[in-house]
């Protein structure tokens, strides 16, 4: 980490992703925030709930639409030391998905544990 980003305070940041990719730019620009934020040495968690779970679906092929396949970048999160990645069980099952359909390893949480995860943060940024 470079000194420029050393602000001496470590806060718990939760990025909440609740929207599907490609239909709007929120998912892509949220990922950009997570990647930039990773350089600040904060305590980062990323949560995918509701349609946000579609962001992690394997085999996305937006290239034919001329759109960026940023889903591959989720695989790089680990290299940025972003290791706390959560997905809500019910959001997956409601959409006919399981963790096997996702392109990265995640920790899955039941819906009744999500509130506690949110409450444990200092900053929640939802996109």
């Amino acid at each position: 980490m470079d000194d420029e980003n050393d602000i001496g305070v470590v806060k718990r940041f939760l990025y909440v992703n609740r929207r599907a990719p490609h239909g709007s730019i929120y998912a892509l620009e949220s990922l950009e925030t997570v990647l930039i934020g990773a350089a600040f040495d904060q305590d980062v968690s990323v949560l995918f709930v509701d349609d946000g779970v579609f962001q992690l679906k394997k085999d996305q092929q937006p290239d034919a639409l001329g759109m960026k396949n940023f889903s591959k970048t989720f695989r790089a999160l680990e290299m940025y030391d972003v290791e706390k990645i959560y997905v809500e069980d019910e959001s997956l099952s409601e959409r006919g998905l399981s963790v096997d359909d996702l392109l990265i390893d995640v920790e899955s949480l039941p819906r009744n544990k999500i509130g506690a995860l949110m409450d444990a943060q200092d900053v929640v940024l939802s996109f």
Partner: peptide
Amino acid sequence: LGQLIEASVEADRVVS
């Protein structure tokens, strides 16, 4: 974007 992270770290609350 670093300005968003920095402001969030320094603030007592973040409202979106």
